[in-house]
């Protein structure tokens, strides 16, 4: 049971916040320059056409966004429920299942799902959700549990109802840890979404897998570089959101 991401330690200075997007820009520029300058055979140039790259990248982004939205919609409410005192007996089994979802290799889930249910975008999303559920679930639970008991005691002692306590106190105070979990899920999903190519769901995995299958190094390299650039970009965006959405005063 790992994957409790807590961000506190590294609070980047204002200037260094722009290093990550700069790397992304340089990476994308290098890829574009390489494609423009390299001598490509017909397979390569077809794979590395601008329209194809944009399409694959968009498919990839869509997979990540949809699966993360689904996993947030599932994981956060489930985490809230599991963090309640009366749910403490169901917490271990649910976490066990979520843990298993992450322990099982995504390729395995994808292939099994493809055999059992079929291929396509939805199957890929299911696999990504299974994989990314744990960090969100766990961070929601931990985020809520780490709220200072004295704060909860004071809130109850002044007459806050349990619902009000949750909305006004517990959730706002859990937000930083929950956002850290969402950030981890997003980054995981950028990587794992490359496997969606095996269920015919597209994405940058098509370039990587196609590059390997046809033994075309340039295609493989471009697929990898763009996946890295996307992961870095997503991490930066999530980090920025984390800082903006965390309540002041904590």
């Amino acid at each position: 049971m790992s994957m409790v991401a807590v961000n506190q330690a590294e609070e980047p200075k204002a200037g260094s916040r722009w290093i990550l997007p700069l790397i992304v820009v340089l990476l994308v520029a290098a890829v574009a320059g390489y494609i423009a300058g390299a001598e490509l055979d017909s397979i390569e140039s077809r794979a590395l056409e601008a329209s194809n790259i944009v399409e694959k990248t968009w498919q990839h982004v869509r997979l990540v966004l949809v699966s993360t939205a689904v996993v947030i919609a599932l994981g956060v409410p489930l985490g809230i429920v599991l963090s309640r005192r009366w749910a403490r007996f169901v917490r271990p089994p649910v976490l066990l299942v979520a843990n298993a979802g992450q322990a099982v290799p995504s390729v395995g889930i994808l292939v099994l799902l493809a055999i059992a249910v079929g291929v396509g975008f939805r199957m890929a999303v299911v696999a990504l959700v299974a994989y990314a559920l744990l960090p969100i679930l766990r961070n929601t639970i931990v985020g809520l549990q780490q709220v200072d008991p004295a704060v909860i005691d004071a809130a109850r002692g002044m007459g806050m109802s349990p619902a009000r306590l949750l909305w006004k106190v517990e959730l706002p105070l859990a937000v930083p840890v929950m956002l850290a979990g969402i950030r981890v899920a997003l980054i995981l999903n950028v990587g794992v979404a490359t496997l969606a190519t095996f269920t015919n769901a597209g994405g940058l995995g098509d370039l990587i897998e196609g590059g390997i299958a046809t033994n075309r190094m340039p295609v493989l390299a471009v697929g990898c570089a763009l996946t890295i650039a996307l992961a870095l970009l997503v991490d930066w965006l999530a980090g920025t959101a984390e800082r903006a959405l965390s309540p002041k005063g904590i």
Binding site: D148, A150, V151, D153, A154, R156, G157, G159, K248
Partner: peptide
């Protein structure tokens, strides 16, 4: 009980101010 507590002041050792 919630209604009752709104009319009783409550102070504890750890203070328990809402940090946010």
């Amino acid at each position: 009980p919630d209604e009752l507590r709104r009319h009783i002041g409550y102070v504890i050792q750890q203070v328990g101010l809402m940090p946010h």
